[in-house]
């Protein structure tokens, strides 16, 4: 059953901020994507649980670009208007690996604490 989309309350802003970078970096691991594609993927793969609006997505993309984790490039394909595609840089890949590992450790720890004890 698809969960209705939930806008995360502002008290979870920090949580969202910390994970948002990981989300974007991981979505670009496979191949370069443009902003609209990234936002749609996040919505689809989270089954509506997470949604990035333009007002938050693009500032984040520019910030990551400024840090050198992403590289943006205008690409013009025949028959289409030009779009800006983002891809991971080498530094971005290192950061992704590090953040991914960190999240996994964190999630495992939470899981261990909150799991129902079996007899």
């Amino acid at each position: 059953m698809a969960m209705p989309y939930i806008e995360l309350p502002s008290s979870d802003r920090e949580w969202k901020k910390g994970s948002a970078e990981l989300l974007i970096l991981s979505l670009l691991e496979a191949r370069p994507r443009h902003g609209y594609e990234i936002s749609k993927l996040i919505e689809q793969r989270s089954e509506g649980a997470l949604r990035f609006y333009v007002a938050s997505l693009y500032p984040l993309l520019y910030r990551l670009e400024k840090r050198g984790w992403l590289q943006g490039r205008w690409v013009e394909r025949s028959g289409q208007r030009r779009r800006r595609y983002y891809r991971l840089t080498r530094q971005g890949r290192k950061v992704l690996a590090s953040q991914r590992h960190g999240w996994q450790v964190f999630v495992e720890a939470i899981k261990r604490i909150t799991e129902v004890e079996h007899a």
Binding site: G35, Y36, V54, Y58, R83, R84
Partner: peptide, 8 residues
């Protein structure tokens, strides 16, 4: 860029 997103 943002206009393209809104158009999509």
């Amino acid at each position: 860029e943002v206009a393209q997103h809104l158009e999509d």
